[in-house]
Design a protein around this nucleic acid. Sequence first.
DNA 1: CGAATTTATGCAATTTATTGCATATTTATT
DNA 2: AATAAATATGCAATAAATTGCATAAATTCG
Lengths: 182, 182
Amino acid sequence: MALSHAIMTALLEDTMSGYELAKAFDVSLGLFWRASHQQIYQELHKLAAKGWLQQETVPQAGKPNKIVYALTPVGHVALEAWVLGGSRVQEGKDDLFVKLYNLAEHNASHLAAEIEQRREQMMQRLYLYEKIRRRHYADPATLPVRRKGVYLALLAGIRQGEHTLSWCDEALALLATVDQRP
Amino acid sequence: MALSHAIMTALLEDTMSGYELAKAFDVSLGLFWRASHQQIYQELHKLAAKGWLQQETVPQAGKPNKIVYALTPVGHVALEAWVLGGSRVQEGKDDLFVKLYNLAEHNASHLAAEIEQRREQMMQRLYLYEKIRRRHYADPATLPVRRKGVYLALLAGIRQGEHTLSWCDEALALLATVDQRP
DNA sequence: CGAATTTATGCAATTTATTGCATATTTATT
DNA sequence: AATAAATATGCAATAAATTGCATAAATTCG
């Protein structure tokens, strides 16, 4: 399972609570590995039991206690070993393309709307990414090593987004010739 | 669950056996929705029980019998309804990007090798796609409606592949500046 | 001839992921 | 003052996917 390794990766720099991890997964790492908070909490327990993470309860004035997790040396070694192992190909899962196989006059306008919506979402995401890029990764060559890796992941997200946008445009143009709305 | 709808989509044109479906999923539709044969067989049973598919046992001279599935009118209606419903965002899951967050001198060469491997795979896939495109989708504007949808899905695969290739090149260039192999 | 591969289908166990709920406290809103 | 929202964690049930195995007949290769 790689969720565990994604969690440990997120803990490389900062110690975090489950709640904070869940939020972190919604932004940077979450692009490449999505997980719900229920999954994360369960995984954290397993990893702590294994000795790859250590827990520490932090009492907070005013807020509920939080349980903060940190990578142990053993966990660090396990993570390193995982990085050097083989990757599994990613699994594509996207409704929209399956739906496109069902294209017909009567659903063309609906599919066009879905594509337009996706285009909109991607625009917003790209805007965010570009902002991060300009702020933190303006000059990739001078970054410390680990940050270069993060930069490459960000770049993959950006390239992906650009591809999606241009595909959306092509798709909408073609769908416009099909659409039979009165 | 959308696997069921992906299966029904695959059965829109041809009737197919589970085995044939599993192979079909390895090529065209499989890019957007991956499934093992175990999953497919199970799902076929469920769909047949629901009345969305009908089975027919075909005795074959020389080979084991096969059970061929066809979309029923009820199944067709259900599929149409699904197409008009909302799509759920795709979930990204890719080890490689998580690994990049762990980039360090001692693993840079390994990660570069993984990226090179992925580049190679993508090249082969793109080659296949372009062949299909030239053979069957040379002039998109003149295609019958449903085929236009399939074409758009294919195009997404092609654009995606192109993006991946160019990202691999950028990544390899940056990794070369990190790699400390003697 | 025997071994491996391809065609064809399936069960069972386990791992992953999702859905829905439950709890408890503080801060901000109305 | 009551309500909602954000912080913080978790259980339980179900659904989906993976892994490993099993069967069985035909074909192909050495």
